[in-house]
Amino acid sequence: MKKSRKSFLKKSRRSFLKAAGISAVAIGAAPAIKAVAVASGGGSASSIPVVSPKAEALTAKRWGMVIDTSKITDEVVEGVTAACRNAHNIPDFTIEPDAEKYPNTRPAKKMQEIKWIWEEHYQYAFPEMEDEFLAEKYKSLPFLVTCNHCKNAPCVQACPTKATFKREDGIVIMDFHRCIGCRFCMAACPYGSRSFNFRDSRPFIEKINPEFPVRSKGVVEKCNLCAERLAKGEQPACVEASEGAIVVGDLENPESEVRVLLNENYAIRRKQELGTEPSVYYIM
């Protein structure tokens, strides 16, 4: 009995030493083994997932927009706002909700609005430029206003959750998931470019576009410069519908269409004196 136990111990000590020796060698060799594994890891699968933009994505150093005010007619305004509304599931609180699909929907207050791009009069779009004898035509012309994707965006500075932030390419965009609905950004934006969802908007969307999410109650929303379309290599919806009145492009590239337009025409920006550096220009 005693003897066998002793031999067991002996044996176990020997195997322990063996195992320890092998482990030591294995630890020493691990980097080499890994290197071999990486070298032979070519082909289609890699050991870590790879993320990338789509190959066809439109890119810019700093996105900007140029609006030719002489080409804005009432039809263009209608077409542009409808295009943006359809592309982004923006509710229209003047429509009657479908009673079958959304029974017991509380009627909307007619003054309630969600605006991404909308028509504005000159004196409200450019309040600081009210010259005494302004050319008559400006008093009646429709102007289109939207988020200016400001270089020094006050909304970004005000947002406590980083739900609103500035992308490297200059687009001021929101992560709706993070928005807590505090509306600091709305107070900070001097252009009224942001709207708050006071209620579930689904009943007031005429036809939901499956290409874009809807928003839940309690988040803020605004123009995203059609980031989801630029990513697919498409022009923004408003540009396509504008019959040439709206152009987007790279403000930092002197050869881009927007820069050529700005070079050849006199253009102004909204409330420049505030120092927000808007990226939307209006050709007068």
Binding site: A45, I48, S52
Partner: peptide
């Protein structure tokens, strides 16, 4: 985060 913040929209999995 990848889509909204970095505009990286494609994902290549380890299975290729």
């Amino acid at each position: 985060d990848s889509v909204v913040r970095d505009s990286d929209r494609m994902y290549k999995s380890t299975n290729g």
